Simulated scan of single mutants.
Amino acid sequence: MSAQQLWDNAASMLAVTEKHPFLVGMVNGTLSNDSFKYYIVQDALYLRDFADCFRRLAESAGSEEDSKQLQASAIGAIEAEMMLHGSFFKEWDNSAEGAKQMPHTLLYTSYLKRVVATRPHKQGLAALLPCHWVYMHVGKRMVKLREGLGECTNRLPQFDAWIDMYGGDDVEEKVKAFIKLVDAECKVATEEELKEMQEHFNMCCKLEHMFWDQASNQMEWPNLGGM
């Protein structure tokens, strides 16, 4: 089995996600700026925990080479994403400081942290893979959709910046490097381990979709007794 097979086995749900209204709305300019700002704040909060998961995986890697590659390819990608988010915050004159993780953000990060902390190294890699791979995949799809639409006066410049990054060559290079790490683990995994890796991969593909659902709806925690 390979990382590609993890992806192929999740093809039906990925086909739905690549058409998510949040993503399509970024391309055709129908996504509200408020939903995008909500998403960027939540994504910045998500990335902090995502980066922590990668630091932990780098520590548990089976070789110094793998540890360095995790830090170079994965953390490098996260830093690039945070720079993009930072540029948006500067333009909007706000930040993620003081913001709280909303329900699906907390659900996603909690799941990742649990897998990384309590399951074998290879399962942690499989759980973190969808975030990188799905973003690269939808980014490239969005580039093609944008090209097909031609000029769109409704699309905000921040939308184009997001599409350009995730549909670009730099992200693709880093994602492919991480896929190779997962491939190496797949080759030495037992049948039971591969099954668990697929389960984590599938779950995180679902959580990716739910993350964009949350932003589309600008979900908030329920107000229970004023708390």
Rank of each mutant, 00 (worst) to 15 (best):
G150V: 02
E65K: 12
E97P: 03
M102D: 01
A161P: 09
D160H: 09
R141Y: 13
H85E: 13
N33F: 10
G124N: 08
Q42E: 08
Q158T: 14
A99S: 03
F54H: 11
W92L: 04
A58T: 08
Q158G: 13
Y46L: 08
L145G: 06
E65A: 15
A99E: 00
A61G: 04
Q71G: 15
R141N: 14
G139N: 01
G76S: 13
I75K: 08
E97A: 11
E65W: 06
Q71M: 15
E64A: 14
F89L: 05
K37Q: 10
D34M: 10
D34F: 09
G76F: 07
R155Q: 13
Q71I: 15
L112T: 01
P130D: 01
S87I: 10
R155D: 03
E81C: 03
H104C: 10
S60P: 06
A61V: 05
Q123C: 12
S67E: 09
A74K: 02
F88I: 12
G148R: 15
D160S: 11
M102I: 12
Y108Q: 02
L47V: 12
P157D: 03
L84C: 08
H121G: 01
E79W: 15
I78C: 13
L129V: 03
D66T: 15
W133D: 03
F54N: 06
S87F: 11
D34K: 11
L45K: 09
Y38H: 12
Q71C: 15
G150P: 04
V138Y: 02
M142G: 02
A80K: 05
E64P: 04
V138L: 02
